[in-house]
């Protein structure tokens, strides 16, 4: 019985992604086949329904999606953690292999970690993700600790 209680907790501790897979109702199919994800971040756009007090609306979401060196899928929020501008992969010719924010020259390494000395104080948020039938599903962007 103890083992039965423990098992779900271990799974929770090991991989938060598994957790989000369980309630994949919250995740949205973003129309991208996992086979089409490369090691170069690509822009993915999709729509989600949002009810926000007075308004019910479709809002557009965007992620930068790629596979890291271990083949793991990474989906980063494009919203600069400084003041919320839209960051682009290799958005500046001066900073190859980084995400770049055009507003105040904020920079992030490929894994989304903020480059010290530039305005952002924490990494780009990471979307919850899951894979089902070879398709990518994305959920909510989650903040991470500062570098």
């Amino acid at each position: 019985m103890a083992a039965g209680l423990l098992a779900p907790m271990i799974r929770f501790a090991i991989d938060p992604v598994l957790q989000s897979q369980e309630k994949s109702g919250d995740l949205v199919n973003v129309n991208l086949s996992v086979d089409d994800i490369t090691d170069t971040p690509q822009r993915v756009d999709w729509e989600v329904q949002q009810v926000d007090g007075w308004y019910e609306s479709n809002i557009n979401r965007t992620a930068w999606v790629y596979k890291d060196e271990n083949g793991e899928i990474v989906a980063l929020s494009p919203i600069c953690t400084h003041l919320g501008c839209f960051v682009s992969w290799e958005g500046s010719e001066d900073y190859p292999n980084e995400f770049y924010c055009p507003c105040h020259d904020g920079r992030y390494y490929k894994d989304g970690t903020n480059v010290p000395g530039t305005p952002p104080l924490r990494p780009l948020d990471v979307y919850e993700h899951a894979v089902e039938n070879g398709m990518l599903y994305l959920g909510e962007p989650k903040p991470r600790e500062g570098a």
Binding site: H82, G84, C85, F86, P102, H104
Partner: peptide, 8 residues
Amino acid sequence: EKELSGRV
């Protein structure tokens, strides 16, 4: 505005 919201 969305694109440049931190400065605009």
